[in-house]
């Protein structure tokens, strides 16, 4: 069996609030001093694929795919350290903020190229959403591009009778489904697919595993077209909401005085808001 996991490199969501800044021109977060990390749901997807391989008893090949800047190689190396077999990076072309539809098209083109060379992928795993924009559409749009059936919010894949048994989270509980490859799933997190810490030997070995690099031109995609995006929505403005809190203390020598003062101020404030 062959599995493909899509990864996204994002700005560290744990960046301290004061370090988080926005570049209004690009309508995106500024990198600043923050680190880049693999999106957590993508790591959950890698872990889910690895656990499927372990349950299936080995004869499963896992490929990691990323559309991102050259720094995203770190995410792919880490996935390979977690024992993903091979990786492919589609290098981003100056487009700092591609929308989900554009990403879906790039990934689909890359997947088709990889399938040409190495045969079809039985399952494509995509993180539920990313920790930066949280749009949550890439999985669905990619499935559309690939013409595959898709299921969202899946938390585990197990080898089933001839197919794959999926567990997915729904509003009313866990749904168990049997799926016949090929298909696409978006992966959510649960306590069982916490990404593993790689063994040091595997970290070292990850540098010896194949990492293929492709450009948009290699995929015969027009970078201008990708940059233009094809979403049904456009980001008009992004900003950091500010909460301004004014604090005043109720004055008074005794508790009664302070309570009276407090009540008086509440009345005044309520009246002023009208």
């Amino acid at each position: 069996m062959k599995l493909l996991v899509c990864l996204k490199q994002i700005l560290d969501p744990d960046v301290p609030a004061r370090d988080f800044q926005i570049d209004p021109a690009v309508k995106a977060a500024r990198r600043g001093g923050a680190n880049l990390v693999t999106n957590i749901f993508c790591e959950n997807a890698v872990e889910t694929a690895l656990q499927f391989r372990e349950a299936a008893g080995g004869d499963v090949k896992i490929t990691a795919l990323c559309y991102g800047e050259s720094s995203a190689e770190d995410c792919l190396r880490k996935a390979m350290a977690m024992t993903v077999d091979e990786a492919c990076l589609v290098e981003r072309d100056g487009n700092t903020n591609p929308d989900a539809a554009a990403v879906g098209r790039v990934l689909a083109a890359a997947i088709r190229r990889l399938e040409q060379d190495g045969g079809p992928f039985d399952a494509v795993l995509v993180g539920r959403e990313s920790g930066d924009w949280g749009v949550g559409q890439t999985g669905g749009l990619l499935a559309e591009e690939l013409g595959r059936p898709a299921l969202g919010f899946v938390e585990s894949l197990q080898p089933g009778n001839g197919g794959v048994t999926l567990r997915r989270q729904t509003d009313v509980g866990i749904e168990v489904a049997e799926a016949e490859p090929p298909f696409l799933v978006t992966i959510t997190n649960n306590e069982d697919n916490v990404p593993r810490i790689p063994k040091t030997r595997d970290v070292m070995m990850s540098y010896r595993k194949p990492l293929q690099k492709l450009s948009l031109a290699d995929l015969e995609l027009d970078s201008e077209e990708i940059r233009a995006g094809s979403s049904i929505f456009e980001v008009e403005e992004i900003f950091i909401p500010t909460d301004e809190v004014e604090c005043e203390l109720a004055e008074g020598d005794t508790l009664e005085e302070r309570v009276d003062q407090l009540a008086k101020r509440i009345h005044e404030v309520v009246a002023s808001i009208g």
Binding site: D14, P16, A17, R18, D19, G33
Partner: peptide
Amino acid sequence: AGTQFSRVD
């Protein structure tokens, strides 16, 4: 992980 400060705050 999760600190609210940067190294220079």
